[in-house]
């Protein structure tokens, strides 16, 4: 079966800035892929190139086998998109905007649209300029979901939604997945991606650093270790494979990538009296990936500093 999304060496530069390094990515029909990365990593850039809104500097992007850079209108036939910022024509009402977007899309399940309007508790009678940010976002979500398109491309679609609506959104995506629609979901909300995705891709500074199922990533990537010591804990930051070290008094939490042997060696030699290990949450994976060596902005999730100061 033809892939929903397929890129080959897709790249994008803005002048001297490389926003996206050559990217090879494939999303199968019916698959839900989460797309994670810190601010400025290149998620939106990837999506805009995928849709042909931005011209790629190199490589190809195909949606269901149609070249999205050369023939965007055709490539969009089976695709619905929700941008991160809901910029709609302020003079239209919610009803009018939904009608227009449905007509331009070319396909809309009206029953489902009405159901979504109910479920999102959306009042479509006001003008767009009078809606709050979250309500504007609902217009685009409802328009995209009700198209029942074979591929949903969502760029941080839940910014501005309250927790109840976020829940409705998750159910709608789960429903789309059951119906065999593919979803490409860029997000900062890790629990959302964890709950919905078959596979996760992580991008940093324009480069795809990790892609796989959560199980694979957990297995291959890192193990979360909690250790309590009798005395002042040793410095684990230099131990090979160890990242994201957090020290609180006599307690240390860290991630281990690859072999645990070096860490066990150090622990055994320094009077550890309690040891706990578990698979990392997506959040911890995410932090582990950004925590070290990334350029600007990469320090955001880094836990090193605080713990050391507190002890």
């Amino acid at each position: 079966m033809v892939a929903a999304i397929r890129t080959q060496q897709l790249s994008k530069r803005f002048g001297a800035t490389v926003a996206l390094q050559p990217l090879d990515l494939e999303v199968a029909a019916g698959e839900v892929v989460g797309y994670l990365g810190p601010n400025g990593a290149g998620k939106t850039t990837t999506i805009r190139c995928l849709l042909g809104l931005a011209r790629a500097s190199g490589g190809r992007a195909e949606l269901f086998g149609v070249d999205a850079q050369r023939r965007p209108a055709e490539a969009h036939r089976r695709v619905a998109y929700v941008p991160g910022e809901a910029n709609l024509w302020p003079g239209l009402t919610g009803t009018e905007a939904l009608h227009l977007l449905g007509r331009v899309q070319g396909q809309v399940d009206e029953r489902y649209r009405d159901e979504l309007v109910e479920r999102f508790r959306f009042d479509p009678s006001k003008r767009v300029r009078a809606y709050s940010k979250g309500n504007r976002q609902k217009v685009l979500l409802i328009a995209a979901l009700s198209s029942r398109a074979d591929l949903l491309i969502l760029d941080e679609p839940t910014t501005g939604l309250d927790p109840l609506m976020e829940q409705e959104f998750r159910e709608a995506v789960a429903d789309a997945r059951r119906r065999g629609q593919a979803v490409f979901l860029s997000s900062h909300i890790l629990s959302e991606v964890e709950a919905l995705s078959d596979r996760v891709a992580i991008i940093r500074a324009g480069e795809l650093v990790e892609i796989g199922t959560l199980a694979e990533m957990r297995h291959l990537s890192a193990l979360s270790v909690d250790a309590t010591f009798d005395d002042v804990p040793p410095d684990l930051r230099r131990v090979p494979g160890v990242t994201a070290v957090e020290v609180t008094g006599n307690h240390v939490r860290c991630q281990v990538v690859g072999s645990v042997e070096p860490l066990l060696g150090v622990l055994a030699a320094s009077g550890v009296h309690q040891l706990l290990s578990r698979e990392p949450s997506l959040e911890e994976l995410f932090i582990a990936h950004y925590g070290d060596g990334g350029p600007a902005g990469a320090g955001d999730g880094d836990g090193h500093g605080d713990g050391a100061g507190a002890s």
């Binding site: 209108a73 055709e74 619905a80 910029n87 331009v104 899309q105 070319g106």
Partner: peptide, 17 residues
């Protein structure tokens, strides 16, 4: 510039159209 156009061009509408 206001981002309104994205909503059309991300659908089956060509820039030329």
């Amino acid at each position: 510039a206001g981002g309104h156009l994205d909503n059309l061009l991300a659908r089956p509408v060509s820039r030329t159209q």
